[in-house]
Design a binder for these strands. Structure first.
Lengths: 215, 215
DNA sequence: CGGGAATTAGAGTGCATGCTCTAGCGGAGC
DNA sequence: GCTCCGCTAGAGCATGCACTCTAATTCCCG
């Protein structure tokens, strides 16, 4: 009936699941739908994965590895505004590729203990990375703020990094374009710490904003 | 069998549903559970409400009325930092009482068109109220920022106002205490615009923070 | 009382979904 | 060609859910 390569079924399941999860939301994608989309039988799907959660967890594992790599970088490196700008773009791009996790976050976490624990860790690492970046900028004299201000700022950065996609989704449910949303998210996070920046760094932010905001 | 007052069934259904929704999440509360909790039959429940969505919509209607009242206020009044502080507390308190809406937001909106439209409006009104408050402070000379900065700031305020509860919930799933979470949310939003405030207003924020943050 | 309307009970239905079970296919090595 | 084994098909099961239907009860009002 078909001439597709047969040996990649396990990989194809996660690829297709990720695509469908992102498009329709994980709760709205049944195992039958995944199997149909792949033109395989439910039995075949369950031969490769014990249950639906195992598919979700596999996808989440890939996401976690990617994000961990990104979040680890800022910790041990001198921070500049350009670093932050790049970091935010990479982060939002990764989040976009796994956006289903963020769309039905609480639902997923309440049904899956592993996700609950690990996602919480990711959140903490996000806040820690944001704080490390801010303190790095402060040490370099590019940012001027008290320790309390930096703590609150880092927390707010974590909030916006985590929920910007959801926010955009509620504001505009039928508008799934990556570029603008990710760039806008990076801009919004940048706007959080812009007022704390001094002189040339602040002007750099304004320049970056002008370049990326209209596009 | 029972001696409870019988005539309030319709009201008791929404009251109990709200409580259960908030505690366990709307998707995890079945109509059977609601009926059981009230010691009534499913048939009785469906006599008063055509379906589950009608219960949700009724609750949402009450929430919308409350929030609309709150959001309308800042628009036509001279703004001060104290006004904002009070406004944020009232808003977070209202959100807390209807927190189930925010917990499974995307799930709810994707299954309920009325909610999708009206919640979107609420979001827009939140951003508008935040922007009005900021511009009011700017006119009063208490806040110093460009128009672009105020726009980005208001958007970020809307994000934190909307998702602070979710954020706290992910960070600490088993810790349902109202006071600290609402106060902390107000503080976080305040921290967003603090760097734009001048002189005495900024010191006032620091004072308010010291009072409410540890508690 | 009596009768009609409002309310309630509770068994039951239909459907969706995650998942299972068994039989069979097909390719690689002997 | 045979056999073994990884892979696949697909009917079907168990469960949980929102929701329905009819009969009974209770309440209101004359």
């Amino acid at each position: 009936m078909e001439r597709k390569p047969k040996r990649r079924t396990r990989e194809r399941i996660v690829e297709t699941s990720l695509r469908l999860f992102n498009e329709f939301g994980e709760p709205n994608v049944t195992t039958t739908v995944i199997a149909d989309e792949l033109n395989i039988s439910p039995g075949n799907l369950y031969y490769h994965y014990r249950n639906k959660d195992e598919i979700t967890n596999t996808i989440f594992g890939a996401f976690e590895r990617e994000v961990d790599g990104l979040l680890a970088a800022p910790a041990h490196r001198a921070a500049t505004v350009e670093d932050l700008w790049l970091f935010l773009h990479l982060l939002f791009e990764a989040i976009w590729r796994y956006r289903f996790l963020y769309r039905d976050l609480n639902d997923l976490l309440s049904r899956n203990r592993l996700l609950e624990i690990h996602f919480k860790q990711i959140l903490e690492r996000k806040a820690a990375a944001a704080e490390a970046l801010c303190r790095g900028l402060a040490e370099g004299g590019e940012l001027l703020a008290t320790s309390e201000e930096i703590s609150a700022l880092a927390t707010n950065m974590a909030v916006v990094m985590t929920y910007w996609l959801s926010f955009e989704y509620v504001r505009n449910p039928r508008n799934p374009q990556e570029g603008p949303i990710a760039a806008r998210g990076a801009y919004q996070v940048m706007a959080l710490l812009a007022p704390f920046l001094v002189g040339e760094s602040r002007q750099l932010v304004e320049k970056l904003s002008r370049e990326y905001l209209p596009g």
